[in-house]
Amino acid sequence: MASGSAELVAFLLVISGWVLVSSTLPTDYWKVSSIDGTVITTATFWANLWKTCVTDSTGVSNCKDFPSMLALDGYIQACRGLMIAAICLGFFGSICALVGMKCTKIGGSEQTKSRIACLAGLIFILCGLCAMTSCSLYANRITVEFFDPLYVAQKYELGAALFIGWAGSSLCIIGGSIFCFSLVKDNKNRRVGYAYNTAASAISTRTKAYNDSTDFKAPNASPKHFDKNAYV
């Protein structure tokens, strides 16, 4: 029962994390910067993995898509690949988690379902690591440019998408770890049960053999009584 509850909690965590990671990819504000006037913000610059935009004080946005994938900076290409890999891994991990959970009726025997659940946990851990690496790589580039005194171009700050990505990747890693630990606990309990049953069966076999040997009596056998002078 405890293992089933742990798997249910892990499933909710990984699904929530995967949804957050998936929503991070099309989110606009990966990095943001603003130009402030005397009273209001005159312009807000923001960018994500696909485009860069500017929004004026009236709320009108002008965006420019990145013209060529091959002409992009290396860190943007790496972030795109890692985020897409994280989303794909989360999809396959969700299928494995549904098959491997004890509350479902598919997946085969209990031992097979436990292995599938462990595989789902490993997939979600890898999913979380990919998403966290992508967000951290992008954030590192922003902070390096922001604190570089020789960088004269527009400086940006961390956007909301990065924090959403970090939260989602953390949930995926935590939920995947719970899946793996539940399998380890099940294997430990199963081994203890097998050892106990083996010891009990061995004791019962020895007891039965002993009883059979002591209860065996030859037919029509009468007890022998020897006198003290029998050997004289």
Rank of each mutant, 00 (worst) to 15 (best):
I116C: 05
N189W: 05
F124M: 14
N140F: 02
Y151P: 04
N189D: 09
Y194W: 03
I76Y: 12
I173N: 04
N197S: 08
G165Q: 08
Y194D: 12
E157I: 02
G90E: 04
A200M: 10
A209M: 09
I125W: 05
L126T: 11
S134K: 05
R115T: 01
C79N: 12
N140E: 08
L98M: 14
L98F: 12
T205R: 13
E157C: 03
Y151V: 09
A161Q: 03
A120E: 06
T205L: 12
S177K: 02
G176C: 09
N211I: 10
R141H: 13
L171E: 07
A160K: 14
G175N: 07
L122Y: 07
G100E: 02
G128I: 13
F181C: 15
D212S: 08
K188G: 02
R191E: 06
G165Y: 03
F147R: 09
G165D: 05
A160Y: 03
N189A: 13
R115D: 00
R191A: 13
A117Y: 06
D148K: 04
C118Y: 02
L122V: 13
I164T: 14
Y138C: 04
T104A: 12
D73K: 09
L126Q: 02
A117T: 03
G128M: 13
S201N: 10
E145Q: 06
G193A: 13
K113R: 15
S182L: 00
T207A: 10
L89E: 01
A167G: 11
R115P: 00
D215G: 06
L89S: 01
A78I: 11
Y75P: 01
M101A: 15
S177W: 01
L119C: 15
I123E: 04
S169L: 08
K217F: 08
D73Q: 15
K188C: 00
G90H: 10
K188W: 03
S136C: 10
A199Q: 12
G107K: 06
G159P: 08
I125D: 03
M132T: 10
F146S: 02
L129A: 15
A199N: 06
Y156F: 15
A200G: 00
I174Y: 09
A97I: 00
L171D: 04
S170C: 14
L183D: 07
T143S: 09
S204L: 07
K208F: 03
S213P: 01
A167K: 02
A139E: 14
I164Y: 05
D212E: 11
K185T: 13
S182G: 03
G175H: 01
I87Y: 02
F147C: 01
I123N: 02
S134D: 07
T198W: 07
K113L: 04
R141T: 10
G175C: 14
L119E: 00
F92N: 00
A139Q: 10
L126C: 10
G176A: 15
I142R: 03
G193S: 08
T104Q: 12
A202Q: 07
F179G: 07
C88W: 06
S134H: 02
I203F: 08
S169H: 09
D212T: 11
I173K: 07
G193W: 05
K208A: 11
G100P: 01
Y75G: 02
A199V: 07
L129F: 14
T104M: 12
S170M: 14
I116G: 05
R206F: 06
G81M: 13
R115E: 11
N187Q: 12
